[in-house]
């Protein structure tokens, strides 16, 4: 089955955020969470999908049982956890969906279609491009620190937080400026500064899945407003 397009993802983000403004009956909360988990299944991320369905189930059940909690500190704790935190669940699920089903090229294409300017798109693409590098760099730096016997354990890191931060930051930032220079050279020699309209290899077609998702989503939105 074809996965949902980036525009549907944008729609889901809006839907989840709108849901924050309404108070939902339990059944609607359950339906909304299930609905938002759907893209995970559509992209065959069954394990992740099931995990989030389970989490949703716990919160929904927890929320349904508000009347059962005792009237003491723990009761309030549970109450706050389930009804307060549970409220944010749709937004969290959407975030999971965004991060596990969206490709950077698709996101860039989507943003371009929304006429987001180049001065946002270039830094945004660089940002995604740079994340894995930061992770790699951090590991290398920690290993290098081990050889010098510097802040080897977590405890010694907490004991001298500023010293440790300095040790990690210096090579990290040094590398960052090197990467920035190299990336700029690579991007410029590949014509990034062309002022004309950019095209995109990524093709986003609106399919049955998208229409279905939007229709169900709008339906849920209707229930939200009238419930």
């Amino acid at each position: 089955m074809k996965q949902a397009s980036i525009f549907t993802t944008f729609f889901l983000i809006i839907l989840a955020n709108v849901s924050l403004f309404f108070s939902m009956p339990v059944w609607l909360q359950a339906a909304l969470c299930c609905f938002l988990c759907a893209p995970l299944f559509l992209t065959r991320k069954y394990k992740k999908g099931l995990k989030w369905l389970l989490i949703s189930a716990i919160f929904v059940v927890g929320n349904a049982c508000v009347l059962l909690y005792p009237d003491n500190f723990w009761g309030h704790y549970l109450l706050f956890l389930f009804s307060g935190f549970g409220k944010l669940l749709p937004v969290v699920i959407v975030a999971v969906v965004v991060f596990s089903t969206t490709r950077v090229s698709e996101l860039v294409y989507g943003l371009r279609c929304l006429h987001v300017p180049q001065w946002i798109i270039i830094p945004l693409s660089v940002l995604f491009r740079f994340f894995p590098t930061i992770r790699y760099d951090y590991r290398q730096i920690r290993e290098a620190m081990k050889f010098r016997g510097l802040a080897v354990s977590g405890a010694s890191m907490l004991l001298h937080p500023f010293r440790s931060m300095e040790l990690i930051y210096v090579p990290l930032l040094n590398n960052a400026s090197n990467v920035a220079a190299d990336l700029t050279a690579a991007a410029l020699t590949r014509g990034i500064s062309d002022p004309g309209t950019k095209s995109s290899l990524t093709e986003v077609s609106i399919g049955v899945v998208d229409i279905g998702m939007v229709v169900v989503g709008l339906g849920l939105l209707g229930c939200l407003v009238y419930a």
Binding site: P117, Q118, P123, L172, A176, T184, I192
Partner: peptide, 23 residues
């Protein structure tokens, strides 16, 4: 680009890199 003509490609890439670190 009209609004930020002061920024060159180099600057935009720097912004991306430091935003990643900030994030």
């Amino acid at each position: 680009m009209r609004k930020f003509t002061g920024l060159r490609t180099k600057d935009l890439i720097n912004v991306g890199i430091y935003s990643a670190l900030y994030f």
